[in-house]
Design a protein around this nucleic acid. Structure first.
Length: 892
RNA sequence: GGGCAAUUAGCUCAGUUGGUUAGAGCGUUCGGUUCACAUCCGAGAGGUCACUGGUUCAAAUCCAGUAUUGCCCACCA
């Protein structure tokens, strides 16, 4: 061992992540380990990142999601796949624009004042700064993305893809312009998709308004939650089955205040049970009324301006804000005796997911995409298992939505985004083109007179192309050839519809193939009280703070461990201690093993197993089982389980038992050759297995370890390979034997602790075994567990006699005596034995009952009965022995 | 209203084809200056597996219902 290396290993008692992580990451970048080669012969394994919004600073949800992706990528990189993880970010239309507009408001100006061009420039600058911040945060976490292929949804090529897709769908007749009721946010001045509207209940009223029948003194009463919309009423509707109102259908009523004549129609939408059984129909301001209007050919009267004030159709209420107008209108109705009554009512109203304003259903001209046809193959893909959800139950959610899919409103009244590639001539003729059409394209129209649509496309209209637009589509690139389709998409459940489903549709429509075969849905990160973490609530934990304090490895490992498969993790700040402690533990045991090689060469790639003792073989058996379990967990996307499996193997099997077992009983003696070789071999496998989870400490340790060997090994653990297993060392009998030894050690420790024997004090140990074979096993390996049980002289055999004053305990197959002259409190010892006795007696009663049941004996499988029989005998035997020991105590 | 999930120790969770003395980590109690690690080591206490029925020789595990919680979807003027 070199002096420098020795110093490295021996210094730094506790692991210090901060000194190590940044420099390792830089090295990885400089060596381009993360770059996927599109011309490689290796099997591809690719992932596209769910692009974080440029408005987001990294929160724990990102940390979790990106750690998951990095684990999958790193694992497959180790396995020898050509991995490609494409990073990037999303321009996040509304969210970004709202932030910049807020800044403008503070500065006393508005976007309209500074103009489109300036506004976009400013927004773009802001987005670029934030974008870099976010991507750097991903680097801090250790994400092994291919930064050479970093993308942004507004990149030139991605914009080209958007325009191409728009054109393709338009020409296919699947994009159309329609008059539809959209959700309008008067504050953001934009339409919102259904998914962007939050529905919240609040205490409100149900107002009953009386409409006078024309040419009669009769009135029809109508219940409404939004009285101001009556200004846009163009009909009343009743149920066709409602006998009460049959006679009125076809007649007209006089709309109060505006005195407009409107018809009474019959429509099955109306529920006779609700309210008065008569509905006011406002086609321009309610989606259901709009449909009634379509069926009955009713006029659509819009009474609102885009900012939520009332327009000229509102008569004297013109110019008033919608809520003020409601107040005044109600006054007026009351005055004119048209308000019959007012009831308390729990109202559900839509609010803008961003600014929380109450959303207005609003009639406007928007662009839509027909979805029904595209949904068909996407539906099949999940039904037939071509695309699998993990956990599987999310596929139900997906299918349910797909089966009831509705057309997608893709226009947004914003400036920040992909401008709709549509140009209008004065007579309304439409040209679809990203740039101003040329003379050849525009035919008889002068291109200079064409005007581009003012609106931009929904943010998701670029996101849904992400799996292939990031790879260069519509160009035919080698990246597409190599890395499409990707393997897995990892995301939260909240965007299964918004994003996942649409990507599947786009994949089929534009690539003719699925975009990914697996969808991994992870939980939503919650705080210690189960509340969803969010910036606005201020209950978020900053990942960077955790990294600074405990290291990225600790953050990664903790959060994966804390996230149950398919469920929401509850995270508090000390959640991360588990990872920090574990990383330190691994670091400590690595130091120990490397030090205790004492200059000998480790064996890393294979193990000479000629002279191995039981403990060596045991840890190899455990190792192989661990590899198998971890592989299985990975196949099922059970990352939390994989982490837990590794945690237990490293901490319990390796550190607590194996490393303790191989420590010589005498100080300053080298560990026996074969055991330290096995220890270093297993350590090496551990590093490889753990690397996807905790990349930094494992790389650091790996680099230290390979300095000690002459074996030709990769310069980075990234390409060191994934541990293989052929089950060669798996030996259940041997594991069972070791468990017996462990239970003896534990039993001895337990007695000593309960009798308050000082941990440093050694004592003799007598073990009376039932059969000689077990005795031989113990005798053969005395030295190796002597120190664990603090034993001086050890007596093992079938005929060992119990020393006069000794504590005793009984385990399966053996009786254990510890002579403790003068140290034993007789009452305490009696208590101890009686407790054990009671426990066993209860078990015996239960099992006797079971074995006394004729049905059980008749119907249960033979093995089960035999097993129970053996257990019963074991309990009986132990009871007898304890009884004897108790009797003996009485003789003291 | 519809759908999906969850309910196991004080807390966070395992328990994958029914047979375990129902486990882990944290917390808690007791004891520890052993030359890898106090970010540690050893030992202990702590559970009618939400409730009620059913299926079965056998249920934390399967079925039905109830309750509570969370999420998603749709929303009745």
């Amino acid at each position: 061992m070199s002096k420098e290396n020795e110093n490295n290993i021996r210094s730094a008692k506790a692991y210090s992540s901060t000194e190590i992580e940044d420099s390792l990451y830089e090295k990885w970048l400089n060596n381009k380990y993360f770059h996927g080669n599109a011309d490689s012969d290796k099997t591809p394994y690719s992932i596209v990142i769910p692009p974080p919004n440029v408005t987001d600073v990294l929160h724990l949800g990102h940390a979790l999601n990106n750690t998951i992706q990095d684990i999958l990528i790193r694992k497959h990189r180790s396995e020898g796949y050509e991995t490609e993880w494409i990073p990037g970010s999303d321009h996040a239309g509304i969210a970004t624009q709202v932030i910049v507009e807020k800044q403008l408001t503070k500065e006393g100006t508005t976007r309209r004042e500074i103009g489109r061009e300036k506004f976009l420039e400013r927004t773009s600058n802001w987005a670029n700064i934030n974008k870099d911040k976010i991507l750097n945060q991903l680097k801090k976490i250790g994400c092994s993305c291919d930064w050479d292929r970093t993308r942004f949804t507004l990149d030139e090529n991605l914009s080209e893809a958007v325009a191409e897709v728009f054109k393709h769908l338009y020409e296919k007749g699947w994009i159309y312009r329609g008059n539809r009721i959209v959700n309008w946010c008067p504050s953001c001045q934009t339409s919102l998709s259904d998914d962007e509207v939050d529905h919240k209940t609040s205490d409100s009223y149900l107002w009953y308004i009386k409409y006078k029948l024309k040419g009669s003194d009769e009135f029809l009463s109508v219940a409404t939650t939004r009285p101001e919309t009556m200004l846009g009423d163009t009909a009343l509707a009743v149920s066709p089955k409602d006998t009460r109102f049959k006679k009125y259908v076809g007649k007209t009523v006089i709309l109060p205040i505006l005195e407009r004549e409107i018809p009474i129609v019959a429509d099955s939408y109306v529920d006779p049970e609700f309210g008065t059984g008569v509905v006011k129909v406002t086609p321009a301001h309610d989606p259901n009324d709009f449909e009634i209007g379509q069926r009955h050919d009713l006029e659509e009267i819009n009474i609102l301006n885009t900012d939520g004030t009332l327009n000229e159709n509102a008569g004297k209420f013109k110019g008033m804000d919608r809520f003020e107008a409601r107040k005044q209108l109600l006054e007026e109705l009351k005055k004119r005796n048209h308000l019959e009554k007012t009831e308390d009512y729990e109202l559900t109203a839509g609010s803008c997911y961003r600014c929380k304003s109450i959303v207005e259903p609003y009639l406007s001209e928007q662009w839509f995409v027909k979805m029904k046809e595209m949904a068909k193959p996407a539906l099949e893909a999940v039904k037939t298992g071509k695309i699998k959800f993990h956990p599987d139950y999310w596929s139900k959610t997906y299918l349910h939505w797909m089966e009831n899919i509705r057309d997608w409103c893709i226009s947004r009244q914003l400036w920040w985004g992909h401008r709709i590639p549509v140009w209008y001539a004065e007579d309304g003729t439409i040209f679809v083109s990203a740039n101003r059409p040329t003379k050849e394209q525009s035919g008889k129209y002068d291109p200079e007179t064409l005007v581009q649509d003012e609106d931009v496309l929904d943010t998701w209209f670029s996101s849904w192309l992400w799996p292939f637009s990031t790879m260069g589509w519509p160009k035919k690139t080698s990246e597409l050839e190599k890395f499409y389709p990707t393997k897995v998409l990892s995301t939260g459940s909240e965007i299964i519809f918004l994003w996942v489903a649409r990507m599947v549709m786009a994949g089929y429509e534009f690539m003719g193939d699925i975009p990914f075969s697996d969808v991994y849905i992870h939980g939503t990160v919650r705080d210690a009280n189960g509340i969803k973490m969010s910036k606005s609530l201020g209950n978020g934990v900053d990942p960077l703070e955790i990294i600074e304090k405990h290291g990225a490895d600790a953050l990664r490992f903790s959060i994966v461990l804390a996230t149950p498969d398919g469920q929401d993790p509850w995270i508090s700040k000390n959640t991360f201690e588990i990872g920090r402690n574990f990383v330190n533990k691994l670091h400590q045991v690595s130091r120990f093993v490397m030090m205790r090689l004492d200059g000998r060469k480790p064996e890393l790639n294979s193990i000479d197993d000629a002279n191995l003792v039981i403990f060596d073989r045991w840890i190899l058996s455990r190792l192989e089982k661990t590899i198998q379990t971890v592989n299985k967990d990975f196949n099922e996307y059970r990352l939390s389980s994989a982490a837990k499996t590794l945690y237990n193997f490293v901490w319990n099997d390796y550190c607590a038992w194996y490393v303790e077992l191989i420590k010589p009983d005498q100080p300053n003696t080298p560990i026996r050759d074969d055991s330290i070789r096995v220890a270093s071999y297993v350590l090496y496998q551990i590093l490889k297995l753990m690397h996807p989870f905790i990349p930094f400490v494992t790389e650091y340790t790996y680099l230290e370890l390979i300095k000690l060997t002459d074996e030709k090994l990769s310069e980075t653990i990234s390409f060191a390979g994934w541990p293989t297993t052929d089950g060669k060392y798996i030996d259940d009998n041997l594991e069972e034997s070791l468990e017996q030894i462990q239970s003896i050690v534990t039993a001895v420790r337990s007695i000593r602790a309960e009798l308050n024997v000082h941990p440093g004090k050694r004592s003799d140990l007598y073990i009376r075994v039932n059969d000689e074979k077990f005795g031989e096993l113990l005798k053969d390996h005395l030295d190796y567990f002597r120190s664990l049980a603090k034993v001086n002289d050890l007596h093992v055999g079938t005929d060992v006699k119990k020393p006069l004053t000794s504590a005793s305990t009984v385990i399966s197959g053996a009786e254990i005596f510890i002579p403790l002259e003068g140290l034993i409190d007789i009452d305490l010892e009696k208590q101890r034995l009686n407790k054990e006795l009671d426990n066993l007696k209860n078990l015996l009663i239960k099992i006797s009952k079971k074995l006394g049941n004729a049905d059980f004996l008749e119907r249960a499988p033979k093995e089960v009965i035999e097993k129970e029989q053996t257990k019963k005998e074991d309990y009986q035997e132990r009871i007898e022995k304890i009884n004897k020991n108790l009797e003996q105590i009485l003789g003291w």
